[in-house]
């Protein structure tokens, strides 16, 4: 595995006490694999991404990147790893510094990591800009001169210029128009093939995750509740939350049908006891209110945390 987390916990302190944003997550991303992470707002998916990159402190558990414990490395020893794992953000407006030209945005990582001389850096910047589908005339411009889709290309170029092994994509197409989404998704697939990348692809959009992923993890209130490879999840989801998510995707086949799931998303400040999904779950019974279900493999490569998954 290129990336592994073991029982990872991330906490924030709030006025009402500790908030468990990530509450015991174990996952793995293999070399060249594309792992989708699905969940709604407040489930902790972006927090998980930042903790993996050590942009947030880890409260407990471990993050291993290529066998090295990211959490315990010194800042100096972390630096070579930073080169190998990168992130693409959701907001194409907030993720680029408005005061820098595209060239300076793309050159800075090379300078910081001491890569190449001036000419070599210029060559690499021009190469990556071409690879993400922009012309080199873009280099002298500022971010505000580009459309959302083009900015996202710049953000992808910045993530890829250091030739990383793992890229965490945090909702990279959610802020884009439909016709632009396809362009960016195809670009990400193309770059994955060309550079042999691994993706941890975070999104709330199941269709997008289904397209880009080899394996999918479903997250609810800080936990992974289901994980499955390939089409298994989509064909035969085991967790009632996964099923509810899939049914909530608008579909012409369900004309004017009431939604599957009632109730509001609980706040991570106030996690229900027992199974954290039980207040919204159509299958909930007494045991769900009392006991937190274990995450167990029910079928090959298909694990779920639910007392009633066999039903």
């Amino acid at each position: 595995m290129l990336l592994e987390t073991h029982d990872l916990h991330v906490r924030f302190s709030t006025q009402n006490g500790a908030l468990h944003a990530v509450d015991g997550v174990s996952l793995g991303v293999g070399r060249g694999e594309s792992v989708g992470l699905v969940g709604e707002s407040g489930c902790g998916k972006s927090t998980l991404a930042k903790a993996v990159l050590r942009l947030l402190p880890v409260a407990a558990g471990r993050v291993l990147f290529d066998g090295q414990d990211v959490g315990t490395l010194s800042a100096r020893d972390l630096q070579p790893l930073r080169r190998r794992m990168q992130i693409v953000f959701q907001d194409p407006f907030g993720s680029l510094n408005p005061r820098h030209t595209v060239e300076s945005i793309l050159t800075a990582p090379l300078v910081v990591h001491g890569l190449g001389d001036r000419q070599e850096r210029r060559r690499r910047v021009e190469e990556i800009v071409g690879q993400v589908g922009l012309s080199s005339s873009a280099l002298s411009r500022y971010p505000h001169e580009f459309s959302g889709g083009q900015r996202q290309r710049i953000g992808i170029a910045r993530a890829l210029i250091l030739k990383p092994d793992l890229v965490i994509c945090d909702e990279p197409v959610s802020a884009l128009d439909l016709s632009i989404q396809a362009q960016i998704l195809n670009l990400l697939v193309g770059m994955k093939r060309a550079l042999g990348l691994s993706y941890l692809f975070i999104s709330h959009d199941l269709s997008v995750v289904r397209f880009i992923s080899d394996r999918v993890l479903v997250m609810y209130l800080g936990r992974i509740v289901e994980s499955a490879a390939g089409d298994d999840l989509w064909q035969a989801p085991l967790h009632p939350y996964t099923r509810a998510l899939m049914q909530a995707v608008p579909d012409p086949a369900r004309r004017r049908q009431a939604p599957a799931l009632s109730g509001d998303l609980p706040s991570p400040e106030n996690v229900p006891p027992g199974c954290r999904f039980h207040p919204r779950c159509p299958l909930a019974t007494e045991i769900c209110r009392r006991q937190d279900p274990a995450f167990r493999e029910l079928r090959p490569q298909h694990a779920v945390a639910c007392h009633h998954a066999e039903a």
Binding site: L178, K192, L206, S207, V208, F211, D231, M246, D251
Partner: peptide, 14 residues
Amino acid sequence: LLAASPRLSAGANY
């Protein structure tokens, strides 16, 4: 637009 949007039910994968 229809062709460009991956649809969950259609099951497109990269």
